[in-house]
Nucleic acid binder design. Structure first.
Lengths: 200, 200
DNA sequence: CGTTCGACCAAAAGTGAATTTCGTTCCAAA
DNA sequence: TTTGGAACGAAATTCACTTTTGGTCGAACG
């Protein structure tokens, strides 16, 4: 009973560190964030953090994992909804745009190479790159099964969609257009994907 | 008459410098190439180069301009051919792949940010980024006029195609697949663009 | 006069030593 | 068990000095 309460307190402290670190990593990035920054924001000694996490990289990994979990929940909510398949893809794209706007560490790690050491980046990216392609693949697969889509090579097509999506997201988010215009642009782009350019 | 001969000799020397520089820039990149490297390859003194070009950046700009001219010739040949519009797009995509394989300075400048100072990159890129979108736009426009395509927003669609093309080119060129397989993959990707993913 | 190149210049880049910062560990205290 | 000050080694930064680089100048040459 006491052991279980202690375990909860331990996890709660881990959670506090992750939350504090999320804000600071988001503001300053991995490299510019020091362990002292994180410790001070929690009004504790720097070395106390090592009681809960093995090191700086493990904290960052935990931050990214948590953000990825939150995204995964939202994605699964979209994918398991009763919306039609095309709307699901629209919702997913818009969800990503929101994340970019929020300066998510998760999105940052999947987009940039120059913010921290490459080993850590590759390690985390390895974990999540395939997941992005898989999400698109699931949507395309559902469309195929419903007889709505006719996608030949699921892997290649998913990759192409992810590449195009990634290339277009940042310019769109950083443009000066309003939400309404942005949504129209997204719809137009998705129409190209859905219907192609050859007249029907 | 003598003035015209002198002008030709002057231009010939400029051309020699450009050709020599092309090879050295291609091999070592802008940053790692010194003016002495270029001078020595022409068996002349470094300061003689400044009689023909104002500086290193002007030489590089001339190199990129020349490569762009050569590409423009090839592109115009494709665009003005009697091939059907879809074949034109295929030919253009394959032409670009060949250029990447050749380590063209032109392709390099349009893809990377970290090879040289940003001001020079931005300057050159400004000059050619729009051109890439325009090439695609001309093809889409032709398709529209021929009643083959039904592209709503030409600007947005062209941008999307360029972004997707750029994002996919390098992984494809650096993959280990053979020419036959690569051509099949390109065809499949272009089919997505032409026909979309929604069943016809 | 047009062209060439050696000497020179200032700025940028590189080098090595000294110093500071950082992530991490250790251990005593509560 | 948890905390934090002191200490540690490595990485990063700073600093002074040296070398390299892009570029200029002016004399020499054809």
């Amino acid at each position: 009973m006491n052991q279980e309460i202690a375990k909860d307190a331990h996890d709660e402290m881990r959670e506090s560190i992750i939350n504090a670190a999320t804000q600071i990593f988001t503001r300053f990035g991995f490299k510019k964030t020091s362990m002292d920054d994180i410790a001070k924001s929690l009004r504790m000694g720097k070395s106390s953090i090592y009681y809960y996490f093995k090191g700086k990289e493990e904290i960052f990994q935990a931050v990214v994992d948590k953000e990825a979990d939150q995204l995964r929940l939202k994605v699964n909510k979209i994918l398991s909804s009763n919306d039609d398949t095309m709307s699901k893809l629209r919702s997913y794209v818009k969800l990503r745009m929101d994340l970019i706007k929020q300066l998510s560490n998760y999105m940052e790690i999947l987009k940039n190479d120059d913010l921290m050491n490459l080993t850590l980046t590759e390690k985390i990216r390895k974990k999540y790159d395939d997941e992005e392609v898989t999400i698109i693949k699931r949507i395309l697969e559902e469309g195929n099964e419903k007889g709505l889509f006719k996608v030949k090579d699921l892997n290649l097509s998913s990759l192409a969609v992810v590449v195009a999506m990634k290339g277009l997201e940042v310019p769109l988010v950083t443009s000066t257009m309003g939400v309404e215009s942005l949504n129209i642009v997204i719809d137009d782009l998705l129409d190209i994907l859905f219907y192609g350019i050859v007249k029907r």
